[in-house]
Simulated assay, not measured.
Amino acid sequence: MIAAHAIQITPEILKLIASIDEFKGAWRALGTLAPDRLSALRRVATIESIGSSTRIEGSKLSDREVARLLSNLQIKSFSTRDEQEVAGYAEVMELVFSSWQNITLTENHIKQLHRDLLTYSEKDAWHRGNYKTSTNSVVAFDEDGKQLGVVFETATPFDTPRLTTELVTWFNEERDAARFHPLLLIGIWVVVFLEIHPFQDGNGRLSRVLTTLLLLQAGYAYVPYSSLESVIEQSKEAYYLALRQTQGTIRTESPNWQPWLVFFLRALAEQVRRLNRKVEREKIVLATLPELSLQIVEFAREHGRITMGDAIRLTDGNRNTLKQHFRSLVAHGQLRQYGSGRGVWYELGNE
């Protein structure tokens, strides 16, 4: 059974939880951002989350390539492994955002999410939606792809079903009992899930999808608007170190939850800081932009990019006037310019 009673609540943990919960309350009371602004923030955060979460696991696609792929998701045909993984992650994220109230934490739902996550991934067709059948210890490689050694031994295929059942039962009972703060509970859930590593592949990506699901269910409604995956990608070494330090102790008499919980809460606090910065910048920018510039920026947010032709159709404005607005937006960092001559196009700058 999971010995969560051994959690040490340090002043730093208390402070981090308090700051995250303060923002949670402020977000609920915010009500100042219009729906189109919110949808633009969510679009950017979703692209960052998908890009970061798949790159943590070895994908090479940039956020711009992810954005391009997402605009063509309906084709349902993806040639590379990276594209297949991004497409699956995008669909599962959308499912979680739209239906989190209806996805109870059961083994069946976890298996379904795993199956959907790998739905386009040809190399994973044989195992998606099923627990692992062979060992999948976490291994470190050097730059040449040579194996350096096992970083962490995960649960055996034999023990996996029992340990996963125990974890799901424990989490649901503790959530109902409300003995622990939800953030501590979710943090422990994630690190134990990754210690079991119940599926042959896709465990890291699935753990981040489940983190988002559990945060939404715990009332952290701002989560879709700021990418936690991006924070983790930018502190990948600390992420793996914290996992290793805690995971090695989970099956002992006195597990050391501290390294992982501190990392997890710091990452959540950074996610909040980034969103807070964006919201504040939105308010300032929107209060000072001329109407034409505002329309241009909003179109770029909604569609990922804008051309002069788009701007003329959108605003019915004069080409020379619009050129001045584009120049000003680029100069102030609100837009970035690509291409030249007739092929010029723009995307958001300081998002």
Rank of each mutant, 00 (worst) to 15 (best):
G343H: 09
R68V: 08
V150G: 02
A90N: 05
L14N: 14
A34P: 08
I306S: 05
L61E: 02
A26C: 06
H332S: 15
M1V: 09
A177M: 13
T156D: 08
K283M: 13
L16T: 06
Y220D: 03
S77F: 11
H325E: 09
T133V: 14
L61Q: 06
E351W: 10
L118D: 05
G317H: 05
S71P: 00
A178T: 12
Q324A: 13
K123Q: 12
A34D: 11
F158T: 12
W126T: 10
L215R: 02
N136T: 11
V150R: 03
G51P: 07
E280R: 02
D144W: 11
E94C: 04
T10Y: 09
L105Y: 08
A87Y: 03
T160V: 09
G25W: 09
F97T: 03
Q200M: 12
G333D: 04
L243T: 03
L289Q: 07
S293H: 04
A125S: 14
L294E: 12
A3Q: 14
F152V: 07
N276E: 01
G202A: 07
F326P: 00
Q217H: 07
L261Y: 05
L148V: 09
G248L: 12
V190M: 12
I2R: 03
S226P: 08
Y120S: 07
S53R: 05
F193S: 02
L41Y: 04
V96E: 01
I312C: 01
P157T: 04
Y239L: 10
L210F: 09
A242K: 07
E143K: 15
R128S: 06
N276R: 01
P290M: 04
K111S: 13
A155L: 00
F171D: 02
V86C: 01
H127V: 10
S98I: 02
T135F: 05
